[in-house]
Write a protein that binds this DNA or RNA. Structure first.
Length: 333
DNA sequence: AGCGTGACGGTTGAC
DNA sequence: GTGTCAACCGTCACG
């Protein structure tokens, strides 16, 4: 993974492309969150999408998409980029299959599948297919010379297995940690500031599921994982070359000015929630066991545009609890 | 003129 | 360490 810190001075050459409206973007990467917020904010103030597009120099297709997503989900953030659908045949499930087979060697795969559902080992979204179960029986379990003991074989322990789905996060602790440690922006108080696929549903297997199909289960943010950066808020780094453009884009004639960029620590506006974020990268690179306070990472908003080769704005692909306050209400203007 | 949509070229991250 | 794959991105052009 690239170094997303914005202290890279090895290259003064920014990259990014310019769209037909003169706006700067990075192909393949989401717009910086401040701009996403600005789009929704302006829409809530009654500005037409076409005018938002022109003012922020963002393609109308993008404006349309962000607004549509926001009205549908309540989230202004991009979806989770990259990654793979987690396997359903976790060691825990394999262990249970082994147990079933040991107890009743005559069980068919389809019977095992039904039993997994019946015993709430899996739910309908993550139960392995019959063919998967057959493959497990064939390849992973074999002759069944010894029953599962919870630590050997396929790692069938139901507890304390590092490969098992992570523990269910405490919604209260997570929410309180994220919300209370920094004052949310005034606009962030109603909806989930989560990407579209917010994991707000807990599956029977104890993992967190996206609520938008296709349903799959990202890992728990608080779990020790070298990949937990997926759950952090987007981080952006800005290049001085584009500061003026970005600031211009962020100024609003509708709200009497916006200090998000020029005055990141200004109290009373959206920026008030985004302090202390410079620890973000250190946290997630060097203290993987630490539950990161995502709210703090929002300071990175103010390091907005654009993008040096080694320090692009690098929106990480975040997951948030749906309980987190949302900045902007998708209400009719 | 405004907007929804899909192709396109791109990035990302788990496997 | 590298390649594959499937998710996502914003732009652009079309209707």
């Amino acid at each position: 993974m690239a170094d997303y810190s914005f202290n890279d001075t090895s290259s003064s050459q920014s990259y990014g492309e310019v769209n037909q409206l003169g706006g700067v973007f990075v192909n393949g990467r989401p717009l910086p969150t401040p701009i996403r917020l600005r789009i929704v904010e302006m829409a809530n103030l009654g500005v037409r999408p076409c005018d938002i597009s022109r003012r922020l120099k963002v393609s109308h297709g993008c404006v349309s998409k962000i607004l549509a997503r926001y009205h549908e989900t309540g989230s202004v953030l991009p979806g989770a980029i990259g990654g793979s659908k987690p396997r359903v045949t976790t060691p825990r499930v394999v262990g249970r299959i082994r147990d079933y087979k040991v107890k009743d060697p005559g069980m068919f795969a389809w019977e095992i599948r039904e039993k997994l559902l019946l015993d709430n080992v899996c739910d309908k979204f993550n139960v392995p297919s019959v063919s998967s179960i057959s493959r497990i029986l064939r390849n992973k379990i074999g002759p069944l010379s010894q029953p599962s003991n919870g630590s050997g074989g396929g790692g069938s322990s139901e507890h304390s297995n590092s490969n098992s789905p992570p523990p269910i996060p405490s919604s209260s602790s997570f929410a309180s940690a994220t919300v209370s440690s920094a004052t949310p922006p005034s606009l962030m108080n109603k909806h989930d500031l989560s990407p579209v696929n917010t994991p707000s549903v807990v599956s029977s297997s104890g993992s967190i599921c996206k609520i938008e199909p296709p349903t799959w289960s990202p890992y728990d943010q608080s779990t020790t994982s070298s990949h937990h950066h997926r759950y952090l808020y987007p981080s952006v780094a800005y290049h001085p070359t584009f500061q003026h453009q970005f600031e211009s884009a962020m100024k609003s004639p509708y709200t009497g000015g916006n200090h998000m960029v020029s005055n990141p620590t200004n109290n009373g506006d959206i920026s008030s929630a985004f302090t202390h974020a410079h620890h973000y990268h250190h946290q997630h690179h060097h203290h993987p066991n630490t539950t990161v306070n995502n709210t703090n990472n929002y300071t990175s908003f103010f390091n907005a545009f654009p993008y040096t080769p080694a320090s692009n704005f690098a929106v990480t692909t975040p997951y948030y609890p749906s309980s987190y306050g949302l900045p902007l209400t998708p209400q009719a203007s």
